[in-house]
Simulated scan of single mutants.
Amino acid sequence: MLLHHADCSMLLVDAQERLLPALDGQQGMVAACGLLLRAARELEVPVLATVQYPKGLGGVVPDLAGLLPPDAVAEKICFDAMAEPGMAGRVAALKRRRVVLCGAEAHVCVLQTAFGLQAAGYEVVVAADAVASRDPEDRQRGLARMERAGMLVATSEMVVFEWLRRADTPAFKAMIPFIKRLKEKS
């Protein structure tokens, strides 16, 4: 299936200030999440974000926080964001059947949230280059497990180009510098 921006929402999971330094591949993850957030803003894809125990792990990293819409961030304690009171309603209110996931950690909160979304009837897309874990093996195993469970594992660039569809639009022209910048950071 190809993705269409009108069918998708996006969920940034726990890309937090005090968690980020411990993650393997953190710079690439932040760059890929930034690309997705910019494309979402350009194409009016609704975005939510979570922060796990912000007293201990801080808020969303500044590079990404500035790209989030107002009131997008929800605090959580549950690893599966969908198990957090009120989150299922927030996702349902977006009225989109596909959810693109990115953030941290791939094998914990991203994985459990992906399974929670899938159980709630959503099609889940995980942007592989936009997720990270402390250990690369955990990240790989988490991605493989999600893919085996029927979730689509793609890259941020795949998602963005599928959302854009065409090269002759103002949205495409607006995204090109960010796509190039992502490749420079990888």
Score class of each variant (00 low, 15 high):
Met1Trp: 11
His5Glu: 13
Ala6Thr: 13
Ala6Arg: 12
Ala6Asp: 15
Cys8Trp: 09
Ser9Phe: 02
Met10Ser: 07
Val13Ile: 13
Ala15Ile: 02
Gln16Arg: 00
Leu19Arg: 06
Leu19Ser: 02
Leu19Trp: 04
Leu20Val: 07
Gly25Ala: 13
Gln26Gly: 11
Gln27Pro: 14
Gly28Phe: 03
Val30Pro: 06
Val30Arg: 03
Ala31Ser: 11
Ala32Pro: 04
Cys33Ser: 05
Leu35Gly: 06
Leu36Ile: 01
Ala40Ser: 02
Glu42Cys: 14
Val45Phe: 11
Thr50Gln: 02
Thr50Arg: 03
Gln52Glu: 13
Gln52Lys: 15
Pro54Met: 03
Lys55Tyr: 11
Leu57Thr: 05
Leu64Trp: 06
Ala65Tyr: 08
Leu67Gln: 05
Leu68Val: 10
Pro69Tyr: 09
Pro69Ala: 11
Pro70Tyr: 02
Asp71Ile: 08
Glu75Phe: 04
Cys78Ile: 02
Cys78Glu: 08
Phe79Met: 15
Asp80Arg: 02
Asp80Thr: 11
Ala81Thr: 07
Ala83Ile: 00
Ala83Lys: 00
Glu84Cys: 01
Pro85Val: 04
Gly86Pro: 10
Met87His: 04
Ala88Phe: 07
Ala88Asp: 02
Ala92His: 08
Lys95Val: 07
Arg96Asn: 06
Arg98Phe: 09
Gly103Gln: 05
Ala106Asp: 14
Leu111Tyr: 08
Leu111His: 06
Gln112Arg: 08
Phe115Asn: 11
Gly116Phe: 02
Gln118Leu: 10
Glu123Gln: 14
Val124Cys: 01
Val125Lys: 11
Val126Leu: 03
Ala127Asp: 01
Ala132Lys: 08
Asp138Val: 15
Arg139Lys: 15
Gln140Tyr: 09
Arg141Glu: 13
Gly142Gln: 03
Ala144Asn: 08
Arg145Gly: 00
Met146Leu: 05
Glu147Ile: 00
Met151Pro: 07
Leu152Tyr: 11
Ala154Glu: 07
Glu157Arg: 03
Met158Gln: 10
Val159Gln: 10
Trp163Cys: 06
Ala167Met: 02
Thr169Leu: 01
Pro170Met: 06
Ala171Arg: 07
Lys173Tyr: 09
Pro177Gly: 03
Phe178Arg: 09
Lys180His: 14
Lys180Asp: 09
Lys183Gln: 13
Lys185Ile: 14
